[in-house]
Design a protein around this nucleic acid. Structure first.
Lengths: 138, 138
DNA sequence: ATGAGTGCAAATAGTTTGCAAGCTG
DNA sequence: CAGCTTGCAAACTATTTGCACTCAT
């Protein structure tokens, strides 16, 4: 748990980002969450308002840039984040009813890369999210 | 071109939705666009404000429900729509620079369905979008 | 004629920006 | 002590909702 946070913090330093209490708190929250969460949710989970909502947005954005977190989207477009480098790239299956999330280790990054290269595109990224109703909600 | 719109209109009737000038105009715009567009963009492309922006939102939502259009998301979370049934399911590769879009016929719906079923999930849907820089923008 | 559909105004959710003050390296 | 970070307020974008009116069926 703290293991994850510690290595993330080390990573911030490496990348020249400053390590503040706020950032540590945000990383803790992400480490504790077993599913991707939005900036607002991250903020809500912070122990007694460790930082401003705006700061949560800004940090998550920074974290994504240096690849300390991975970004996803909800069915409604909300951006969500989870701790982890892109070499641990994976996706999620989210319940439309209760929000319960399962990790999905399927990915077609390679195939996409090929198709994209065929069109002459570079710097390919992708978003993939699956939604459904979990056993309890159906 | 009108072919697509006509069959879409027929589909609305089948599903019990009413066929209005506004809906026809929206379908025309979608048929004319070669890439998925947002509700705002659809609205902007309507010949001299054929309907209100809100109506565009509401119609696109309805259209998606009856499966006359397919919904996607931009990298920033904006919802986008393109004409077409889910049996013609496909994805897109969008340029981060100019917005140019290419169709991608890759899809892992089947694999996702399997994994999801394994977790006991039902009514699976998914979102997948790829982004990159096109030859002109790189 | 009746309820689905529309327009207008206003509310909401999620996110971004400007700027002065604070803290890290 | 320079400048990255933060907080607060405010702006913004995308989308939704309430309600009276209209029109397709």
């Amino acid at each position: 748990m703290t293991q994850l946070v510690d290595s993330a913090i080390a990573f911030l330093r490496e990348k020249g980002l400053r390590v503040t209490e706020q950032r540590k708190a945000i990383l803790e929250v992400l480490a504790r969450s077993d599913s991707p969460i939005s900036a607002e949710e991250t903020y809500a989970l912070l122990p007694d308002k460790s930082c401003d909502l705006v700061t949560a947005y800004r940090c998550l954005e920074q974290f994504e840039k240096i690849d300390v977190v991975q970004r996803g989207v909800r069915e409604n477009g909300t951006k969500v984040y989870c701790l982890g480098h892109s070499h641990d790239h994976h996706h999620h299956l989210t319940c439309r009813g209760c929000g319960k999330t399962e990790r999905v280790d399927l990915c077609m990054a390679k195939e996409l890369e090929e198709v994209a290269t065929g069109y002459g595109f570079v710097e390919i990224s992708h978003i993939m999210e699956a939604f459904g109703l979990c056993p309890e909600c159906k």
